[in-house]
């Protein structure tokens, strides 16, 4: 464990977010949904056509992640973050629809930064390439949508002591 790291229950309250400082190491606890390139594309189309989403975006946390397959008896495979920037094209729309927390790696576009600040959302950087470590932080994984996408399917994860760094708020 990293000393002095804050523990945050997901979704964070406005007060939680207010108390975070960029650069803080935190441990996240609670529910996150995995979604990456193709899931974002489908969800954006669903919003555009007023169709139901695989999960309620209001207050949700999305983890940009495509895990390796779980082996027999495992909850999930290795599951580190993927590059967030590839989701930038869809993210302002998701934030408008209530998305509160994003977890991924790397830099975000100006449009995403503006949307995060305007809506009181937060972007956490997970440690890229620490996939075996993150695997050990997942206590439950349930399929939610798009199983045809393989590793890009949407999963609901329950995470415990998931390390991340506050990057944009």
């Amino acid at each position: 464990m990293i000393e002095n790291a804050k523990h945050i229950d997901l979704p964070p309250t406005p007060a939680d977010i207010k108390n975070l400082n960029v650069g803080d190491v935190v441990y996240l606890n609670g529910t996150v949904y995995t979604a990456r390139d193709q899931a974002h594309k489908r969800m954006a189309l669903a919003i555009e056509h007023n169709e139901a989403l695989p999960f309620d975006l209001d207050g949700a946390a999305i983890y940009y992640c495509g895990p390796t397959p779980a082996r027999d008896g495992e909850i999930i495979g290795s599951c580190g973050p993927t590059t967030s920037g590839r989701m930038d094209a869809y993210t302002p729309l998701f934030i408008e629809n209530g998305l509160k927390v994003m977890i991924g790696k790397g830099v975000r576009s100006d449009e995403v930064i503006t949307a995060i600040k305007a809506r009181g959302a937060v972007y956490f950087s997970a440690i890229g390439g620490a996939a075996a470590l993150y695997k050990s932080c997942v206590v439950k994984a349930e399929p939610v949508a798009y199983p045809d996408l393989g590793c890009e399917a949407v999963l609901r994860l329950t995470v415990k002591d998931f390390p991340a760094v506050v990057s944009i708020k």
Partner: peptide, 11 residues
């Protein structure tokens, strides 16, 4: 962790 649990070091 990857080596001791035979997990892929990166997804």
């Amino acid at each position: 962790i990857a080596e001791t649990t035979n997990a892929f070091c990166c997804q």
